[in-house]
Write a protein that binds this DNA or RNA. Structure first.
Lengths: 342, 342
DNA sequence: CTGAAAGCGCTAACAG
DNA sequence: CTGTTAGCGCTTTCAG
């Protein structure tokens, strides 16, 4: 059996009380330097590791936070996680990461598990199939610090970090129009997601402002966000079968962008006939056969900011009531400018 | 403050003892069906969630396992994680994932944290900078179930899962030779890694068996494994500056493969001059400008097997002493066969 | 079938 | 500066 050294063992060995040892290890001001040294040396000697479950049980703090994302295989999320961890590490917080695979039930389970593991807070991106938020609302109301990023929930009042979905979509469409495109299709992710809505609003606004009437038939939803390839392929087929074929496609998601490229390749649609711009944080984009224009979110930075916000809530003396939503710029890279240097 | 419902609350509300409630919830045989129903209904009503820290503290079990990988942004690992989770979910185990970013110190920290969080077991891929194993050896000796996958540690006797690094490397090189290549370079990851050694052995064996003397100058190590691009670029430059330039490159790692492609592109080396085959689990390989030949590990399957092995150790009645190493085939895809269908 | 009581390893009053 | 004591929420003997 795995039987670690406990604080009590140290106390016994050193003929001290458990509380003294506890305090010495936590560098309390009320312990003499000699005792501290004694304890710390012995602890190091026997490779003592405090048991966070016991500590957490007592102190209701665990110095660890939970990160919940839909999919680890998505570059955007893994980049954001690295951003979160870069701050967490510095502040002595551990991170516990889980993926929901965009399942509502998995999300509930994961969030509950984390809350009960006494994470001090949660950074979360909603699963695309989540439409009810009671599981989060409850935790939030009971005082669990939560920060949303990327896919946020309007209904819950806390810190949020998003990229400027509206503006960058707007800008992208504007540029397409300037380039001469008139029939711009929109390949969208799940319609209930905040990001989908924002990106669609940017798309529509740009068209409207440029006096181009937008046509419903040019908007295709792919709820799976590109993980079910057939869905994307069907959408593309339908688009290309239209009387008035699109001359450009704007893609609202990372995996969807890649899925779209794959569909175009399969359908042998030449990239000359079609301007493509999509949201993407894939780090291989410069190696693609069709180096598409793309909107790249500053994922690492978004992660960092999320963590900072979370710390602010966790370490607040008084409950925070005045939350705000931070919007981070995204960077647009146009295919013709895509160089090799990175 | 976040104040969840406790078992005691239920006991109080139902006028039962905590132990009865505990037993009822855990479906113990010694509790009447009526009581069980009463308790379960009430628990569901108030959305009771048992506190795993308290339970774990007492029972020394947590029904959760730790996964430690170097890098979440690496497709191979995220695929493997999904494999692990597919089994874990089914068996009611939670997973806690952490990345080490290939840092030895981060690895120690993460592993300690997990052990103390009372994970019931650990599935781990070594960081490339780890050369001492005492941190793992200790835990293993004290009885923490550990399964290694991909990058294993010979010195620790437990279950291990690897892909057939030797054989697939051997096969790949053999095919290159059959294709007429004679001067095959080897772009290797960190030399101390088990996978590097195995892949290099396959490389050398194939050459030797085909009576091609292998030249040291054709072997270049990139300890960062491709995350420091300059390293790869330098290696490629040196290779291409040789009197006897290589006519093929065999690449020992996923990120390294991509890094290599980037370097070749930057140096404007045409893919016609050079046959390339590399280990890679990137899921966009069919969309690359240069759709290289690649060796793809069955990451998901490897993850599943790892988890099954871990369960075997965790749930063993008697300590297991007879461990084995499972070798999983990898699949080789030759560039000329790369189609669009997937 | 149910309850009382002890204790997992640690922290936090409260004393001295 | 250090020790005593009482729990955190749960499981688990041991008694009914």
């Amino acid at each position: 059996m795995y039987k670690p050294i406990t604080l009590k063992d140290i106390a016994l060995a050193l003929d001290l009380s458990p509380s003294t040892v506890s305090r010495a290890l936590r560098d309390s001001y009320e312990i003499s330097n000699e005792t501290k040294k004694l304890v710390n040396d012995y602890a190091a000697l026997v490779n003592y590791q405090s048991n966070p479950m016991a500590a957490g049980l007592r102190s209701k703090k665990s110095k660890s936070i939970g990160i919940v994302v839909p999919d680890l295989a998505n570059s955007f999320f893994s980049q954001a996680i690295s951003g979160i961890e870069s701050i967490a590490d510095k502040e002595g917080y551990h991170t516990i990461i889980s993926q929901t695979k965009d399942s509502y039930h998995k999300e509930i389970e994961v969030v509950n598990h984390m809350a009960n593991r006494s994470v001090d807070g949660l950074i979360i991106t909603m699963s695309s199939n989540t439409t009810a938020y009671t599981h989060l609302q409850q935790m939030h109301k009971s005082g669990l610090p939560i920060v949303f990023f990327d896919r946020i929930v309007e209904e819950i009042d806390t810190y949020k970090v998003i990229c400027n979905n509206f503006e960058s979509s707007y800008k992208a469409i504007l540029q397409l129009i300037e380039n001469g495109n008139r029939s711009i299709a929109f390949l969208a992710t799940a319609p209930q997601l905040s990001i989908t809505k924002e990106r669609m609003n940017g798309y529509r606004a740009a068209l409207t402002d440029q006096h181009i009437t937008w046509r419903d038939e040019l908007i295709k939803f792919c709820p799976s966000g590109g993980s079910e390839h057939g869905e994307t392929e069907l959408a593309i087929k339908q688009l290309m079968a239209l009387d008035q074929r699109p001359d450009a496609i704007f893609i609202a998601g990372d995996r969807l962008s890649m899925s779209c490229l794959r569909a175009l390749k399969k359908l042998q649609i030449n990239s000359d006939e079609l301007s493509i711009i999509g949201f993407s944080n894939v780090d291989l984009i410069d190696l693609l056969e069709t180096p598409i224009s793309h909107i790249r979110q500053r994922a690492f930075e978004m992660g960092q900011i999320s963590m900072k916000m979370l710390l602010k809530i966790i370490e607040a003396k008084y409950p925070i009531t005045d939350f705000d939503t931070k919007t981070i710029d995204a960077d647009i890279f146009w295919a013709e400018h895509l160089g090799l240097d990175r």
